[in-house]
Amino acid sequence: MNLAEGVQIVSFGILAFMMLASAIGVVLLNNIVYSAFLLGVVFVSISGLYILLNAAFVAAAQILIYVGAVNVLILFGIMLVNKRRDFARIPNAWLNQGVTALVCGGLFALLSSMIIATPWSISTAPIAGDAALVEIGKHFFTDFLLPFELASVLLLMALIGAIVIARREFFPEEGEDLSAESNLTLPERPRELTGGRR
């Protein structure tokens, strides 16, 4: 039994609404944590669209990487930032906003005109379905072998770079006053200066 066409249209409508509403929320909400969670909703809806397009592996990869990894990194990045502060108003902010609106509107016009102009040829080949995963695996180890191996080098670079940046190489001298360095309220904060091994 296959899901009917109507179900597909209704699911597409729900997913598109979810995606657009949460994308607008990401931009408009003042609390940056809410924005980050709504970004996760956007990613989940995109993954739903992939499922509707019969690309199950891409959908799973979308959930794993974007929701499970990228969004978590964004949330941690927000939590690393100190408490929110009151920022001073930028003078002539309307000028910046106007330029931003111009750039975004131009980009939108460009992309939509490209989408309309492109002759989308709908393939009549049978849908690969579950066999697509095997095809992806074959491509990984034949004509896409170099990008595949380079991906691991890229991941290695990201890992080592993050460790080098995040590790504290700093050990304070005896009697040095640290109270000026941090005005944080986290109870476990002073403990990390004594830890770490070389």
Binding site: V70, V72, L73, L80, K83, L159, L184
Partner: peptide, 15 residues
Amino acid sequence: IQFNIRYYMFSLVFV
């Protein structure tokens, strides 16, 4: 509050 950067390191290794 500001979180310890160690959490970020763990999440990055996970990623």
